[in-house]
Nucleic acid binder design. Structure first.
Length: 506
RNA sequence: GCCCUCGUAGUUCAAUGGAUAGAACGGAAGUUUCCUAAACUUUAAAUACAGGUUCGAUUCCUGUCGAAGGCACCA
């Protein structure tokens, strides 16, 4: 907000020392609380041509600034720091302008289109705390970009196909068979459970059964590698994936049904988090798209084909590795799908920038993705930005879905809201509130605490969550800020009659 | 083996190369006829180690030690 001083300083430098100084490299900060001043200019860089010591340089600039800018009331110099005090009239004018500005905080349109992809869940298990960090970061970034005048498209890429999806489908099918009931007669309604949780339960059940099978094979003298290869569970899952790819009606039917349950569950969680998407991409629609890119890359000699028919790109000259793009059996891998999806997104929206909110474990993947797109000469390659964030860790280490060491998103949200309820009730602050108002209050406080907890940490850094200690409602927390806001409102309310408006005081 | 990231109070987190490294929780000692005690006041407590660049380094560079992640046909 003190940028206007920078140009004046550059002017002073030009007039007195005949030097052009890039005004953007001038450092102006808010003055620390222990010193007198509104803002502070760092004058060390000016001593080079002023040929004065820092103190004298500060005084020199202070004098000149006073002469040039009538808003400055006084200045003082401490070491190499020039502290500026503005006149009260300056602040009144500034604050009135800010108040009158209905779109305060909203910048003028940049005319740029930006896509933000976040959440990007698998449809074989419910959302967990890691997703929540991802979702809140993605949603926040989208909102910030909007406020900065960009046209923002919020998307998510749903990983709705693959062997892991077949695992929960298979476990479900087996359960129906075991109970000798029709497929579909076990469902979220009959089980009174959210759809994503029901499917997640079967995913865990598959893993249990698989592990038990491996264990018994090993006990019968089969070595570990062969046991994995000979597992009937895994073979059935693989067969199911082949059937899915072949479009076998009963498999597709089950897949649609179970994914439908999951989407209903996700929608409820998203709603509670207060986030939305403008467009969803489904991997089942995009997983074959990369093949076109493979053909294209081979034609342009960006990719090479080995004797066994596998397709590669050599990135060793760029300091990376040799990366496979298509297996010898002709199936595409993760990166190839992403190449195809990137193209599809661009075809749909022609955006200037595409931001992927994805964990930092995929830093390498996105480096490779961008490089491949560049080498293919894609116009959108430079607009790709991997918003890489750190993992949420538990005291026991990384969260792993299969091992059950995850903090479930729905459970956590419910806990936070309940904890807000407990505390609020204990403090006896609910007098005169209707049930609906109470519910809204608990939600606002609980979710405020959760969101602030996850967003206050530098996104790049990994963060620790200890389930033993619930998220604080006191201290540097969301509720603390909400409470401060409530008190400020209360002061304004109570002083209404005596309040002097800014306009009047001017 | 190679690549990337990170090491700050007891703990969880701050600090565009700038002033005396800030908070919160936890510890110790206090505060309620007064604006919402989900508060406030006081207090002890930290830059992994060794060099270098700089007027100035938690921040940049090099090395050591430690932690986590990735690459060698899973997404």
């Amino acid at each position: 907000m003190f940028n206007f001083l920078k140009d004046t300083i550059a002017e002073i430098i030009l007039e007195n020392f005949q030097q052009t100084f890039n005004s953007s490299s001038i450092q102006i900060n808010a003055t620390p609380i222990d010193y007198v001043g509104d803002c502070t200019i760092v004058v060390f860089p000016f001593t080079k041509f002023s040929k004065l010591n820092p103190e004298a340089t500060g005084n020199f600039f202070g004098e000149k600034l006073m002469a040039k800018n009538s808003n400055i009331e006084s200045y003082n110099v401490v070491k190499g720091f020039l502290n500026i005090v503005f006149k009260p009239e300056f602040w009144l004018t500034e604050l009135c302008l800010a108040k009158a500005n209905k779109s305060f905080g909203q910048l003028a349109s940049t005319g740029r289109k930006v896509m933000v992809e976040y959440s990007s869940p698998n449809t074989n298990k419910p959302l967990h705390l890691g997703h929540v960090r991802n979702i809140l970061l993605g949603h926040s970034i989208a909102e910030i970009l909007k406020a900065c005048g960009n046209d923002v498209i919020k998307t998510t890429l749903v990983n709705d196909r693959g062997i892991h999806i077949c695992k929960s489908m298979l476990a479900y099918k087996k359960d129906c068979e075991k109970r000798e009931i029709r497929i579909g007669s076990i469902n979220p309604t009959t089980e009174s459970i959210k759809g994503d949780h029901l499917v997640g339960k079967y995913y865990v059940e598959f893993d249990k059964a698989y592990k038990a099978e491996i264990k018994s094979l090993i006990e019968n003298g089969v070595n570990e590698d062969d046991a994995a290869k000979n597992s009937s569970m895994m073979k059935e899952a693989q067969q199911m994936l082949l059937d899915w790819e072949a479009g076998k009606p009963e498999v597709i039917e089950l897949w649609k049904t179970m994914n439908g349950w999951v989407y209903e569950g996700f929608d409820a969680s998203y709603k509670k988090l207060g986030v939305t998407f403008d467009k969803s991409y489904y991997e089942s629609n995009t997983y074959l798209l990369g093949k076109k890119a493979v053909v294209e890359g081979l034609k342009e000699s960006v990719f090479v084909q080995d004797a066994d028919n596998s397709v590669w790109i050599d990135l060793t000259n760029d300091g990376l590795d040799r990366k496979i793009l298509q297996r010898k059996d002709g199936t595409s891998v993760y990166i190839t799908q992403d190449v195809g999806t990137a193209q599809m997104k661009y075809d749909d929206y022609k955006m200037d920038e595409s931001i992927y909110v994805v964990g930092n474990e995929q830093d390498y993947h996105f480096k490779v993705l961008q490089l491949i797109l560049k080498k293919l000469g894609k116009p959108y390659a430079d607009g790709i930005y991997h918003m890489s964030y750190g993992m949420v860790e538990l005291p026991s280490g990384k969260m792993k879905s299969r091992e059950g060491t995850v903090v479930d998103a729905d459970d956590l949200m419910a806990e936070m809201i309940d904890s807000a309820k407990q505390t609020t009730t204990a403090l006896g602050k609910l007098e005169g509130l209707s049930e609906a108002e109470k519910e809204k209050l608990f939600y606002t406080i609980g979710m405020g605490a959760l969101k602030y907890f996850l967003l206050k940490v530098d996104p790049k850094k990994k963060m620790m969550f200890n389930p033993e200690e619930s998220i604080e409602l006191q201290g540097n927390t969301g509720p603390f800020i909400q409470y401060t806001h409530a008190r400020i409102c209360s002061i304004l309310r109570n002083n209404k009659l005596e309040r002097i408006t800014l306009e009047e005081s001017i």
